[in-house]
């Protein structure tokens, strides 16, 4: 367990050191959110109708940001070889990386999500659900993103490739999360969307590490 916590601490501090950690992701999130009214029209009633959805979309995009470096840096400097040889199974190592990624960028983004949604015109009563959905959804974004990052190890066009691999897999969490927020705003039952989001996230957290470890072993072989 101490090896695990040491690894988590290492990944967490690396995530902060990696280009400003949450600050960069938050800045990106603010930029995308402020572009949205410029692109979609700034009339309050149009904007309010799509506000939760836009905030959710910006969240999915912002969680793509630092993925490229998640495995690439350790792969380049040989740390990934050492981690693969270490006492912790590679599956758990990969899961820890994603968990640290989520703590360093996903959780701050989840706290910023209601601010973005309200700034775009969503009702204030939506804020708690937005945070909750963004926390759960961010976890699946982190694990699926880690899967994409590990699969593109050893390729040249890393960043774009990760986005192309990962965005189709982001479809269910985007639909479930935005659906729950939309249903809440309309006064409809919203719990099913949140439960489906949680189920998808649980599956991603359980299964993605297996794929990540297989991809890392393949890249190291």
């Amino acid at each position: 367990m101490s090896a695990f916590s040491a690894l988590l601490r290492r990944e967490f501090s690396l995530a902060f050191g990696r280009g400003g950690g949450p600050l960069l992701a938050l800045a990106f999130y603010a930029c995308v959110t402020s572009l949205a009214p410029l692109a979609a029209g700034r009339a309050p009633e149009t904007l309010a109708a799509v506000a939760p959805g836009l905030a959710w979309l910006a969240l999915a995009l912002a969680s793509l940001l630092s993925l490229e470096r998640l495995f690439e840096r350790d792969y380049e400097d040989g740390a990934l070889d050492l981690l693969a040889l270490g006492p912790i199974p590679l599956e758990l190592t990969c899961a820890t990386k994603c968990l640290a990624q989520w703590l360093a960028t996903g959780a701050p983004l989840a706290l910023a999500a209601p601010i973005a949604a309200i700034a775009l015109g969503a009702p204030v009563s939506l804020a708690p659900l937005t945070v909750l959905a963004a926390l759960i959804g961010g976890l699946s974004f982190a694990f699926l993103g880690g899967l994409g990052a590990s699969l593109s190890l050893g390729s040249r066009r890393g960043g774009m490739l990760v986005a192309v691999i990962v965005l189709p897999l982001f479809t269910p969490p985007v639909i479930f999360g935005a659906g729950a927020l939309w249903a809440f705003g309309e006064g409809l039952p919203w719990a099913s969307g949140l439960l489906l989001l949680g189920g998808y996230t649980a599956a991603a957290v359980a299964l993605a590490p297996i794929g990540m470890a297989a991809a890392c072993r393949n890249a190291l072989s």
Partner: peptide, 12 residues
Amino acid sequence: LSYLALRAAIED
């Protein structure tokens, strides 16, 4: 497309 892109992007 992502399958094809990934396959094309890695040299080995």
